[in-house]
Design a protein around this nucleic acid. Structure first.
Length: 379
RNA sequence: GGUGGGGUGGCCGAGUGGCUAAUGGCAGCAGACUGUAAAUCUGCCGCGCUUUGCGCUACGUAGGUUCGAAUCCUACCCCCACCA
């Protein structure tokens, strides 16, 4: 039910298949983010047609609105949203970082002041598990304490240690929930490696997680939260040799196209990132030649597709000039079309990487790809 | 024809003697965004240059008052409302 079959490796890069209750996920894979139970702006069919095999939901946001009991009463997140393929829910741990000004951390859990109505909302390792069980995604994430990328050792140590202690509580509660076995529901729990940018802490975190195993997958959190890219690469490289080969590795919150390739090159199997949809809504598109600002004046009469090398529904049909017009006219179709392109772009990057890994040509392909990719935005 | 109100940078619109190349907003231009408090945010936005500075032009037009005017005075042109 929660198997990971490692099909090929090419250096540290891996290609595999993750089997989950709602279907298979071929890796390397990019998961579009659907915080509120929807990939922002998109119809589930569009998300599916972009090639998505799994999407995310968010514990904190769905707890606040509509509330997990509503989702449970309506048959769980799959039925509620009509997304019938695999889903993963993030635990609310990222909101410990992103909503820093609205929360208070203690060993018991995190007291949030709701960003919606100011009411007090406490999330504990146990309640995060309860909420995620009610949402009933295929994969639940451990409730973790994410610290900023520049966090000094002391703070990173605190977050890492707390994440490990909370993992014990998550695991106990999750096993209790599994034991109830209500309605034949099943779900797996993935732990999260923390420790900031400090090698000793990352190692301790990973060792702590592995001694608490077994697990069906493992996540690396607390990256791309303000640290320079080379530092993220270093952390991944230091971690890679100690990660068991049999488990899928999920690099949380990453990333941009180049981050996917750099992550895959360092042994990562699964990614998620809001940038595809957020940048899409903001008019910033990724293409094989680099970033394109779709509002740019120079595109006014550009009759070509966003990315000639892309097979998405946007590129196969609409011109850059039309997309620009939609943005200038504030037609919501524009936001949607670029979002569709961006998620297809990342998913296809994973698909291409998978092919290259199986062919044993990943590294050369990656170097070539990155050399052609202009990150400055004048593609 | 009379009376009153008004003409400000691409547009709307503040400003009623010096702190004003002129608040705001819109439009335009450029950029940012990494487990979503974001269909958001930031910067530029009279012209030129050796661009943390300098020069030029500018608040309907032409004069005037003043050390100094978008701001005060005079004349004229135009717009709006009401009255004839």
């Amino acid at each position: 039910m929660f198997e990971f079959l490692l099909e090929a490796t090419d250096g540290p890069a891996r290609a595999g298949t993750l089997t989950l209750p709602h279907g298979a996920v071929e890796t390397p894979a990019f998961m579009p983010v659907g915080t509120h139970g929807a990939v922002r702006g998109l119809h589930p069919v569009e998300v599916r047609r972009a090639g998505a095999q799994i999407i995310l939901g968010n514990t904190y946001h769905l707890h606040l609105r509509p509330g997990e009991e509503v989702v449970r009463a309506l048959g769980g997140l799959h039925r509620f949203t009509t997304w019938d393929r695999p889903m993963l829910t993030d635990s609310g741990g990222f909101q410990v970082f992103s909503l820093e000004g609205l929360r208070k951390i203690s060993e018991a859990g995190v007291e949030f002041v709701s960003h919606i109505d100011g009411s007090a909302r406490t999330i504990t390792p146990e309640s995060s598990m309860d909420i995620q069980w009610a949402l009933s995604a295929d994969i639940a994430m451990a409730f973790d304490h994410v610290v900023p990328g520049q966090a000094p050792w002391e703070l990173a140590e605190e977050g890492m240690g707390r994440t490990l202690r909370w993992l014990d509580r998550c695991r106990i509660r999750h096993q209790e929930l599994l034991a109830t076995g209500a309605g034949g529901q099943t779900q797996t729990l993935w732990p999260i490696v923390q420790g900031g940018t400090h090698q000793d802490l990352r190692r301790r975190s990973l060792e702590g997680i592995l001694t608490r195993g077994p697990w069906t997958g493992i996540a690396i959190g607390g990256l791309s939260v303000g640290e320079p890219k080379p530092v993220m690469h270093r952390v991944l490289e230091e971690l890679a040799p100690a990660l068991p080969a049999r488990m899928p590795r999920y690099l949380m919150g990453v990333g941009f196209p180049d981050d996917l390739l750099e992550g895959i090159a360092r042994g990562v199997d699964v990614f998620d990132c809001v940038a595809a949809t957020r940048n899409g809504r903001h008019g910033s598109a990724w293409t094989s030649a680099g970033k394109v600002n779709i509002r740019a004046a120079k595109l006014r009469l550009d009759d070509g597709p966003l990315d000639p090398a892309c097979d998405c529904e946007t590129c196969s049909r609409f011109s850059r000039a039309y997309l620009r017009h939609l943005f200038m006219a504030e037609e919501m179709l524009g936001l949607r079309l670029v979002s569709i392109h961006n998620i297809r772009f990342l998913i296809r990057l994973g698909e291409q990487a998978r092919t290259e890994i199986k062919a044993g040509t990943f590294d050369a392909w990656r170097r070539d790809w990155l050399a052609r990719y202009d990150n400055r935005g004048d593609a």
